[in-house]
Design a protein around this nucleic acid. Structure first.
Lengths: 221, 221
DNA sequence: CCTGGCTCGTCAGGGACTTGTCAGCAATTG
DNA sequence: CAATTGCTGACAAGTCCCTGACGAGCCAGG
């Protein structure tokens, strides 16, 4: 991971650089606005730490030019404490986060980690239990990785059980979740629904605890 | 744009909701941790405003569970002023930003804008999904590299779905995006629009999730 | 002002899918 | 064995979504 630090005060810049380096990041240091702009535009960084008060070109101007040029690396802006308008301006100029000076090393590291993880981690949201998985973004149910056609109500039922996997859910609670709270329907409707689901997911996907309710086991035997 | 507000104090929650709603966002409100977790995991939000002190499940725990499940929507944490350790913990748990209470409406809006832009904009003017691509700069839609003639409304619909590719978008949200929030039109208008689009983009470009909405899958099978 | 092309909302019809209900069967319990 | 609880198949009403057609609105050109 490569980080550009833009900071004109040598002492602060060096301190940040040392902290980040020892945390395993590769760091470059720019000390004025022009240098910063050139580097950010020609090199490729995973993150930029940007001080706003800079010689030659203001930090905000640098940021705006980067964004206008389509550079979209995360930028963490360093502001003076209490400079409230600066923060809003910075954020509207395309900053992803800001940090008030003076700051602690731990906090810098935490922010850096957060921003980098955000820009990297684009995993898909999957809940898994045995050979079942639930893709909550695309609203699909998968058995052994294969998409299974499930109706809206069926999907919501599986979703609820998956979210409470490993726990026995009483029928009353399921019905309450599926329909509005007040709606008192026949318990048989639920049984029919579960039967239809078992046909699609396999007979063992949803277990019955006679007298108590249903569950999707966390780990199948 | 859809935002989940998690806040147990009714007055604050209502205030935020009203501010964001009038700024053009669609808002849901959750008042305890369990509700928040379930919604954040089953519904799709473009952003979450998360208060940490919650009944039933702590805000940090909710956030960690979301992240563990791969949910990566931006989360803006609301903390008490000066609770420094809370901030670092929150950021390490996967928060993207935090805001100290009490806060100003303008600041909330600026942060929200920044986070949403970051998660949507991604700088590059070309969004691709399967054989579909969207050139946001020239406002054109391409199928297999060929330009497809799309009307303004059609373009906006594809653009919205592409910006949210891989996510099921409910009709109500689409209509809200295409027309002003308050405009309550016939859902059939949307169906007609989608039908016209399918004729141009191919029948499989836009998938229907009966009972839930439409989506453009990020990776076609 | 008219005309023609395009866009987009509306209507009506129809097909496919959903889901509650019922009746009967199977399994478990006492 | 009887009673209770859960499973199953069939069915029908209901819902959701697709589709073709139509026309109002808008804009540019003649």
């Amino acid at each position: 991971m490569r980080i550009l630090i833009v900071e004109d005060e040598a002492r602060i810049g060096a301190a940040i650089k040392s902290a980040l380096s020892s945390a395993g990041y590769t760091c470059d240091l720019a000390v004025d606005g022009e240098d910063a702009w050139f580097r950010g535009d020609t090199e490729s960084y995973d993150l930029v730490l940007l001080d706003l008060g800079l010689p030659k070109m203001d930090g905000l101007a640098v940021l705006k030019r980067w964004r206008a040029a389509g550079r979209n690396m995360p930028v963490l802006v360093l502001t003076a404490r209490g400079a409230w308008t600066e923060r809003v301006e910075g954020i509207d100029a395309g900053a992803d986060d800001y940090l008030a000076k003076p700051f602690r090393t731990e906090e810098v590291l935490a922010r850096v980690r957060a921003l980098i993880r955000r820009s990297v981690g684009q995993g898909n949201p999957l809940i898994e239990a045995g050979n079942l998985s639930l893709d909550t973004r695309q609203m699909r149910v998968l058995v052994d990785g294969e998409v299974v056609q499930a109706s809206p109500l069926e999907y919501r039922l599986v979703a609820y059980l998956m979210h409470h996997k490993g726990r026995v859910v009483p029928p009353h609670e399921l019905l309450e979740h599926l329909h509005g709270d007040d709606d008192a329907r026949n318990a048989n409707a639920l049984e029919a629904l579960i039967m239809r689901l078992r046909k699609k997911l396999g007979p063992d996907a949803i277990e019955t605890r006679r007298g108590f309710g249903y569950l999707i086991a966390d780990v199948k035997p």
